[in-house]
Amino acid sequence: MKRKIKNLPKIIWKSGILSWILLLVIWTVAASFQSPDFLPGPKATLAGLKEIIASGVLWQDIRISIWRVVNGWLRGLLIGIPLGLLIGRYKVARELMEPILNFFRFVPSIGFLTLFLMWFGVGEESKLALIMYASVFPVIINTAAGVQRIDPVKYQASESLGANRFWSFITVTIPASVPGIFTGVRLGLSASIISIVGAEMLAASDGVGYLIYTSKLYFRTDWIFVGIVTLGTLGFLADRGLRFFASKALKHYGAV
């Protein structure tokens, strides 16, 4: 028991809870100088939160946003990981794709908003395309970087054990690039969450991004804060979840 108490400061420090307390303090202090319509403090935000939860809108919005993020993100992975593997492994693919990648990765997804609406309609497809677009670049780039970090000795080992090029790709390139792929998966997810606001701002009637956007129309600054806190929390939890998964399932791949 005594030992536990002795370790308590360390546990608190490691849990990261102090960062949250610090953030709350700064937020409270800053808000106390302003009117709650301009900058609502934690208390006002909490009141707003209760209000939207009670109306049932928030859960609806969260659910639809999560669905969109996960859907668009998975599509990004489906395209990004194989492309990244090829670009990382084969010089031809790299030289062909690199200029294109380095052009489009500087065009933010929001720049395509109107185009995607025109091409894919106002339904779900345009939003998913936007999220996919946002997530695919970090996935490609980090996967390719992960492939290029593979120690050439691994290939030598596999080839001197009888693997041909195809099998060394399957049995060395893919598993050995898991750390890079995983970084891409994480950054792709955060890019997806970031892009959801843009996707839901113009062409949606629900979702957390829509909540943030429309709250402005009602002068409900506290609801905007609820939306911001929700997105941050979702992202934080999702990243934690991914890292937890990796620490269990991908331990021997050196992903975490």
Partner: peptide, 21 residues
Amino acid sequence: GPGADRGVVFQNADQALFPWL
């Protein structure tokens, strides 16, 4: 080229082994 008739034991096992297996 390399082939299974010549087995290689490398200097650095961390580089040469497959840690995921």
